[in-house]
């Protein structure tokens, strides 16, 4: 079977693909597709997808499918790449809840930890987003309400989880993140724990009516 015969004929009976340069351009398509497949970073893969879309639009237009080329350029390149960029940006993120005084001033203890966490998460194509909370009670409530993926507790107030040394404790509720942190985070920098719903949050004792009367 000789496939160029089956391709559409242009006006005047001349084939659209009667030139040898078509084969050279068509060969670029699997090359750029392989570049998309073997790219680990999602943003760089999106750029490769744009390159693939441009080449595909060129080939479609060359073979006579002008409408297909226009659709590939509009939907395949512009809309898909933009939507995927927004989706990747909002999904590949780890939200870490921190106490406000720790987040505001770069303390000697907190800043190396954050730098280490950023470089650790960057290997997994994640980025770190800090969410500040005013006190420890709202921090635990945010973790229980699934507003954040983990919270960073300073060592000074972390008494109930019997942490050893003065390393801060990172409480995580996502099991996969806990696996990464347990395997790759040294205990001297921070200690990681998996949050379970029966973990009693160290809520501050509030004076109740019974105490006043009793």
């Amino acid at each position: 079977m000789c496939w160029p015969i089956a391709l559409p004929m242009r006006r005047g009976g001349r084939s659209a693909v009667d030139n040898s340069y078509v084969y050279a351009i068509v060969l670029l398509l699997p090359l750029s597709a392989a570049m998309v497949v073997f790219q680990a970073n999602p943003y760089q893969a999106l750029i490769m997808r744009g390159i693939l879309g441009s080449l595909a639009a060129l080939i479609y237009a060359m073979l006579g499918g002008a409408d297909v080329a226009l659709t590939e350029a509009l939907v395949g390149t512009m809309l898909a790449v933009t939507l995927y960029a927004v989706a990747v940006r909002s999904s590949l993120v780890m939200r870490l809840g921190v106490l406000q005084e720790e987040g505001m001033k770069p303390s000697l203890q907190g800043q190396p930890l954050l730098d280490y966490l950023r470089s650790l998460l960057k290997r997994y194509q994640l980025r770190l987003e800090l969410v500040s909370y005013t006190d420890q009670r709202t921090l635990h409530q945010a973790l229980a309400a699934k507003e954040v993926h983990g919270i960073c507790l300073p060592s000074a107030v972390e008494q109930t989880y019997d942490s050893d040394g003065d390393a801060p404790c990172i409480l995580l509720r996502v099991p996969r993140l806990y696996e990464i942190f347990a395997a790759e985070l040294p205990g001297a920098i921070a200690e990681s724990r998996l949050y379970s719903p029966e973990d009693a949050a160290p809520l501050p004792k509030t004076p109740t009516l019974t105490e006043e009367h009793g």
Partner: peptide, 20 residues
């Protein structure tokens, strides 16, 4: 027809690039 499509792709492709 291909010419018009080429002009459209020339303008729209750069818009996608700027968004990204």
């Amino acid at each position: 027809m291909i010419g018009v499509v080429g002009v459209l792709i020339l303008s729209v492709g750069n818009a996608a690039l700027m968004l990204l």
